[in-house]
Structure formats: C-alpha cells, structure tokens
C-alpha cells in the first residue's frame, strides 16, 4: 500500500511541480557545509567522462533498490559501459519514470555520451558508471555521505575520470 501511495505521489508531483516544491520546503533539509571545488582547465575533447545518476538505474540482473524502507536505499550499482540498454531498468517509486522507461537517455544519457565520444567531443567514457536512487533520508544520509559517495569517488579517481555528469530522476 505504501509503494502505491509513493507512486501516486510521484505522478502528482510530476504533474504539479509546485506541490513538490511545497513538499520540499516542509521536510527538514540536511545542512551541507561548504561546497567542494576542483578547478577545471582541460579541453573537453581530451576528457574522460563518467555518468552518476540518482534516478534508480541498475542492471536487471542486479538487486533492485529497496523500496520498502521509507528512508530509501543508500547503496549503489555499478553500470559497465558496455551494458546493452535492454539490460537496464529503473527501480524508484518517488518519481514518474514512464518516459525514462521508454528511453533511458532521459535520465541516463549514455547513448548521447557515446555519440559525443565517437564524434570526438569527449575522449572517453568511464568503463564503470554508477546508479543510485535519490530518495534518501534519516539514518541513510550518513551512509550516503560517508560510505557510498566516498566509495564511488575513489572508483572514479582510480579510473582517472576527469569530470562526472551527475543526473537526477
């Protein structure tokens, strides 16, 4: 019943964005201190780019994100670059992803990046990209900040990624 309610709310928020804004104002925000910063001086055509999405994208063979926990699921899924698009799916009850189900590029534009790579606009795409689900609250925020994001950042650094395109749902 709870999942049905969440899906219904997601459709209402998609149709009436001002209601979503009101909802966001009501919930207590997590106070983020400071903004991380790295200067960027490289030419894009020489860059290796990675995609990290909070839209709930994962492989069909991977464990879906937990939709029963009201605080969300702070874990992540690795999405290899060579994954056929028919092997991808979305598990996320908190936004209406019917359009993204038709074309994953709406939230996870991996085909567009491949076209840019093939056209020479960027040099490379990370061999591993990442999927998370972006409805994290309560105790899971700590895990997201101190474990999940650190683990993803290390992987991206080890892969010598120059820039990351972060995409929401």
């Amino acid at each position: 019943m709870s999942r049905l309610k969440n899906k219904l709310l997601a459709k209402i928020f998609t149709r009436f964005p001002f209601l979503a804004e009101l909802w966001v104002k009501k919930i207590a925000p997590w106070k983020v201190e400071g903004t991380p910063w790295s200067p960027f001086n490289k030419d894009l055509k020489d860059c290796k780019i990675a995609l990290v999405t909070t839209a709930g994208v994962h492989l069909k063979t991977q464990k879906p994100f937990d939709m029963k926990d009201p605080d969300g699921d702070p874990s992540f899924r690795e999405i290899p670059l060579d994954t056929p698009k028919e092997d991808l799916m979305i598990t996320h009850d908190y936004y209406d992803h019917r359009d993204a189900d038709k074309d994953m590029n709406v939230v996870f534009p991996i085909d567009r990046l491949k076209e840019m790579r093939d056209g020479g606009e960027i040099a490379e795409i990370s061999e591993i990209n990442f999927g998370l689900m972006g409805h994290i609250s309560g105790r899971h925020i700590y895990t997201l900040i101190n474990e999940t994001s650190q683990c993803i950042a290390k992987s991206l650094k080890d892969a010598k990624v120059d820039a990351v395109l972060l995409t929401p749902g």
């Binding site: 979503a20 839209a55 534009p109 840019m116």
Partner: peptide, 17 residues
C-alpha cells in the same frame, strides 16, 4: 522541466544534447 525528465523527452536526441 517535470520531475524525471532532466534531459527532456524520450528519443529527442537534439534536446538531450
């Protein structure tokens, strides 16, 4: 844009780009 559409509508390549 509506939630769930950060790059726009399905199959609109030029919009995504």
């Amino acid at each position: 844009w509506p939630l769930g559409h950060p790059f726009g509508e399905p199959f609109k390549v030029r919009q995504h780009n």
